[in-house]
């Protein structure tokens, strides 16, 4: 594998699409060598604005993303897009169709990098991979990184948490106010976009959603963000500049307190958790069964507890670097 050779991180930072793309494949496949490159990329990360796009299938997320790309490019901002589509739980195959909708917005433009990812049926694993891919695009120097997910299921919520700003895409006729009140999805939205604004029912949907008075509470300060509801038509390119304005407003809002750094901290913590989990699993799997005492595994529960306690105790004895004292 050439990608783990010295120089990969420099090439990624210098915006080499080929090397970035291969690194992303390694991240997807959980190749350990990718970690070393990611670590080298880290000093170059932190300047990208992260936007999550989520919503029910068919809401027009990809078409809306294409409109956002066009608007951002017209403002001179470079864009990375991570488009996630589901894998079949039966064949593990996937049809990744998001790129097709974004073609006109991105064609021949070196300022746009679109990557489709299949969910591969591991929600936790996918969120971890997306987190790392965000770092790759950030290190490449993309001003804005958009993560587009299928807005169904718990794993998607995890991915949405990666973003500085989560845009929830609704469509008119999706359901009445009760649908929008159901737990889960609306609780992560920072901005709501009602797509297909060219349809007659759109104004009513906007009214109903505004009537919900969605707010987000700043987890780090005593203030709230009122979730704006914007009517857009990706098809007619209406309301798109306004939507970008709202996304930027929210981005600035999170910087006025510790909110944004809290999001960053959560991202890094998620990466830490994912890495520890993966490394420990690999270490454990490499221990030969015969290495275990004959009787020790007779009670796997107690054995596991003892095993973990030992590791934690060893860290505590050394003074547990990195953890705040309780």
């Amino acid at each position: 594998m050439t990608s783990s050779a010295p120089g990969t991180s420099e090439l990624v930072v210098s915006d080499s699409v080929r090397h970035a793309a291969r690194l992303i494949t390694q991240i997807e496949n959980g190749v350990p060598a990718a970690r070393a490159v990611l670590a080298e990329l880290l000093p170059h990360c932190g300047s990208a604005q992260l936007v999550g796009i989520t919503g029910p299938p068919g809401a027009g997320k990809s078409t809306l993303t294409a409109s956002l790309i066009k608007e951002l490019r017209s403002q001179g901002r470079s864009v990375g897009v991570i488009a996630v589509d589901p894998s079949s739980p039966f064949s593990m195959g996937a049809l990744l169709g998001d790129r097709d909708r974004m073609l006109e917005a991105a064609s021949g433009d070196p300022g746009v990098f679109i990557r489709s990812l299949a969910s591969r049926g591991v929600p936790g694993g996918l969120a971890a991979a997306v987190n790392d891919v965000v770092d790759v695009m950030d290190a490449m120097g993309k001003d804005v990184v958009i993560v587009e997910t299928v807005g169904v299921g718990q794993g998607e919520l995890e991915i949405a948490k990666i973003a500085h700003t989560v845009v929830l895409v609704f469509v008119p006729g999706y359901g009445d106010a009760l649908q929008a009140m159901k737990a889960g999805i609306t609780e992560i939205a920072d901005v709501v976009a009602v797509n297909k604004g060219d349809l007659a029912e759109a104004s009513r949907a906007v009214q109903e959603l505004r009537g919900q008075d969605y707010v987000r509470h700043d987890p780090t300060a005593d203030r709230t963000w009122v979730v704006p509801v914007q009517k857009v038509s990706a098809l007619r390119n209406e309301g798109i500049a306004e939507l970008v304005g709202l996304i930027d407003d929210h981005y600035r809002f999170t910087a006025q307190s510790a909110w944004r750094s809290e999001i960053e901290r959560n991202r890094r913590h998620a990466q830490f958790m994912a890495f520890v989990t993966e490394r420990l699993r690999a270490e454990l799997a490499s221990i030969d069964l015969d290495a275990f005492d004959a009787g020790w595994l007779r009670d796997p529960y107690a054995a596991a507890e003892e095993f973990v306690t030992e590791i934690v105790k060893a860290r505590a004895d050394r003074g547990a670097v990195g953890l705040a004292a309780k």
Partner: peptide, 19 residues
């Protein structure tokens, strides 16, 4: 068919070969 064979398929329409 390729999806059902377990492959990840990016489907898209192109205008010019550079795309």
């Amino acid at each position: 068919e390729l999806r059902d064979a377990g492959m990840e398929v990016v489907y898209f329409r192109f205008g010019v070969v550079d795309e």
